[in-house]
Design a protein around this nucleic acid. Structure first.
Lengths: 333, 333
DNA sequence: CTGTTAGCGCATTCAA
DNA sequence: TTGAATGCGCTAACAG
C-alpha cells in the first residue's frame, strides 16, 4: 500500500492541514518543512491524484483529439504538446479520430467522461457540432491547426492563404509563368492554401489553368499520381506547388522515378518540412510551419484557460510561416 | 454542476447502494432499473471517475510510453492500442521518450504519479532499470516490439531473427548471391534482424562480406546514404535487405535518384509495409509485421493483467511475420 | 502558522 | 434484493 498523508502525519506529528498546505505550496515553518520533506522521502509518499481531484474537481489531465495519430504532422505536434503539459504536471489522454466526424464527437464525450480539465483538438470536422458536450460541461477547448467558425474556441494556427501566397511570390520572383498546384480539396487548410495560391497568381496576371489544378485527398498517392499526370502533359508546367507534406513526398517520388529531374525539368515548392529535406536531393524549397511554437502555444493556452477560468471572447493565434530556400526551384528570371 | 448519484437517489427514491449496484452491473428489480435509467437520462448523469477511483483504487487509465511518437510505427500501434482501451472504458496517457533512457524512466514515474492501472512500453532502453518504479508499485507492464531480458514483464513482439531469415530465404530462392544489408545497429530489433539475416546467408554458404554490412542509426538518412554507397561500389550487390521502414524509404529514394533502377539493377527487400507500397514503383517486396494484431494484443494483455492481478511468470507473445511479394526482387535463378 | 472538522462522490460492508 | 452507514485520501473552511 502506498503511503498516505496520514502516514506523514504520524511520522511528523503535524496535522493533515499543515501537510496539505505544504504539498500545495503554502507557507510552513522551516523546521516543519524539513520534517515533512524527510517523511515524504522516507515513506516514498506521492499525492493520490484521484483523492485530490475529488476535492478540487480537477484531474490535471488534458484530452487531445487528433485527426490522425499516424501522421507525422500530428505526431510532432503531440510531442511538443506533451512536453509542455508534462512539465506542468498535466497528463494527456490521446484519442484518434481517423478523420471521422462521428469518432471526433465520441472522443470529446469520452474526455468528458474521463473528467479532463481541458481539451485540445486537431480537428477533422468542419462543423462545430462535435464540441457540444464540451460546451455543455463548460470545458475549455483549444483548436490547433484549423479554426472552426462559430465554435467560440481559442485557436492556434497559421494563415494558410498567406503561406500559399509566399509560395506563389517565390515562383513569380523566379520567373515561373506556367505553374501548377497539387492540393487537398477535402480539408479546410488545403482549400485555403489553394485559394491563396490562385489569388496571388491571378493578381500577378498569371491565373492557373484548370488542368494545372490538381484536387484530391491528403495523401502521398494523390501527390504521386498528380505529379505523374502533370509530367505527362505536352505543355508541362515549369513549377508545382505541393500544399502539404504527404503531397510533397508523393510528388518528389514521382519526379525521381520519371525521366525528368528537379529542378532542371520541373521546379517544386513544398509544404511542411518535417523530415524530407534531410533526405531528398536536391534540397527542397519549402513553406514551413512553426511546429514547435504551434504545439507549445496550444498547450500553454489550454493550461491558461483551465487555470484562469477565462471566459473572454475567443482568440485566434495566427503564427507566421516562412520559406526555407533550397534548390528545388529553378531561377528562370 | 454535474449530477451525482445523490440526485438519482432523490429522483428515484432508491438508496445509494442500489443505484451503485446498478451502475456496476449488479442485479436490480426491473422496475427499479427502469427508474434509474430514466433518472440517468433526465439528469444526464455520468459516474465521477475520480470518486470511483478513490474507492476502488483504479483509475481506468493505462500509461503508454513510446520511443518516438513521431514515427509511423508507433503511431499505428497507438491507433490500435487506443481503440481497444477506449472500447473497454480505459483511457491512455501517452508519453514520448524520444529514444532517451532517462526520459523513459521519468515517463514511468509520471505514470505512477498519475495512478495508472497498467503500463505499455514500446521501449528504447535495453536495460530493465527504467521499470523499477513500476515494479515497486506493483503496476503491471507489457512490453511491445522489444523484450527486455530479466524484466519479468509480458511482451508482445515478432521473432526478428526469423523474420530476417524469411527475407534471406527469399533472396536465396531468387538466385541472389551478392547480398547486402542496411540495418540499425543502435537497437535490439535491428541487431536481431542483422543476426538472423547473416546466419541464414552463412548457412546457405553465402556469408555477407563486411563491406555489404551497413550499420548505422534507425533513420531515412542512413538508408539513403548506405544505398548510395552500395551503388557506387565497383562490385555492386545484386540485392539489399533494408531492415526497417525508415531505412527502406531512404534506400528507395536513393535508388530512384540514381541512374540505376529497381529491380533491374538492384533488388530490394524491405521491412514494415506501413505506406510505402501504395506509392513506390515497383511495388515493394516486404517483410511485414502484424501491426494491428500487435497493438490489439498488447492492449488486451494489459487489460487482462490489470483485471486478473495475474502474477504468473511473464509470457512472451511472439507473432508471425510474413512476406508480401511485390516486384522489387529480380529473379536471377 | 497550525490544528480540527467536514465533505468531495462513490463502492462496499452488514443488516434487514 | 435493498438500505444505512462507513471510509477511500485529500483540500478547504474556520478557529486558534
Amino acid at each position: 500500500m502506498p503511503a498516505t498523508i496520514r502516514d506523514i502525519k504520524d511520522q511528523t506529528g503535524l496535522s493533515l492541514a499543515t501537510i496539505s498546505k505544504y504539498l500545495n505550496g503554502g507557507n510552513v515553518l522551516p523546521e516543519n518543512k524539513v520534517k515533512i520533506e524527510r517523511a515524504i522521502n522516507d515513506l516514498d509518499y506521492q499525492v493520490n491524484e484521484m483523492a485530490r481531484g475529488l476535492v478540487t474537481n480537477m484531474s490535471r489531465t488534458v484530452g487531445v483529439s487528433v485527426h490522425d495519430i499516424g501522421s507525422l504532422f500530428c505526431g510532432i505536434l503531440l510531442r511538443y504538446i506533451g512536453d509542455v503539459l508534462k512539465n506542468n504536471g498535466y497528463s494527456m489522454i490521446i484519442c484518434d479520430s481517423r478523420d471521422d466526424a462521428k469518432r471526433e464527437e465520441e472522443n470529446i464525450e469520452f474526455f468528458i467522461k474521463k473528467n479532463v480539465d481541458g481539451i485540445i483538438v486537431i480537428p477533422s470536422s468542419q462543423s462545430k457540432d462535435f464540441l457540444k458536450s464540451a460546451k455543455k460541461n463548460n470545458i475549455p477547448v483549444v483548436l490547433l491547426d484549423r479554426s472552426i467558425t462559430g465554435s467560440g474556441c481559442d485557436c492556434v494556427r497559421i494563415d494558410n492563404r498567406a503561406a500559399a501566397s509566399l509560395a506563389a511570390a517565390l515562383l513569380i520572383d523566379n520567373g515561373h509563368k506556367a505553374n501548377a498546384i497539387i492540393y487537398s480539396s477535402v480539408e479546410y487548410t488545403g482549400i485555403e492554401r489553394y485559394k491563396g495560391f490562385l489569388e496571388t497568381m491571378s493578381d500577378a496576371g498569371m491565373p492557373i489553368p484548370e488542368e494545372f489544378q490538381m484536387a484530391g485527398t491528403h495523401s502521398i498517392e494523390h501527390g504521386y499520381r498528380s505529379m505523374n499526370e502533370l509530367l505527362s502533359k505536352k505543355n508541362r508546367p515549369t513549377a508545382v506547388f505541393t500544399t502539404n507534406y504527404e503531397l510533397t513526398l508523393g510528388a518528389v517520388m514521382a519526379v525521381n522515378e520519371s525521366k525528368y529531374s528537379c529542378p532542371d525539368d520541373i521546379s517544386i515548392i513544398g509544404f511542411d518540412n518535417l523530415i524530407l529535406s534531410h533526405v531528398v536531393q536536391p534540397k527542397m524549397t519549402m513553406v514551413v510551419q512553426p511546429m514547435k511554437e504551434m504545439g507549445e502555444k496550444a498547450a500553454q493556452l489550454i493550461l491558461f484557460k483551465i487555470k484562469s477560468k477565462d471566459k473572454d471572447s475567443p482568440m485566434e493565434y495566427v503564427l507566421n510561416t516562412s520559406i526555407e530556400v533550397g534548390n528545388s526551384v529553378l531561377n528562370l528570371a
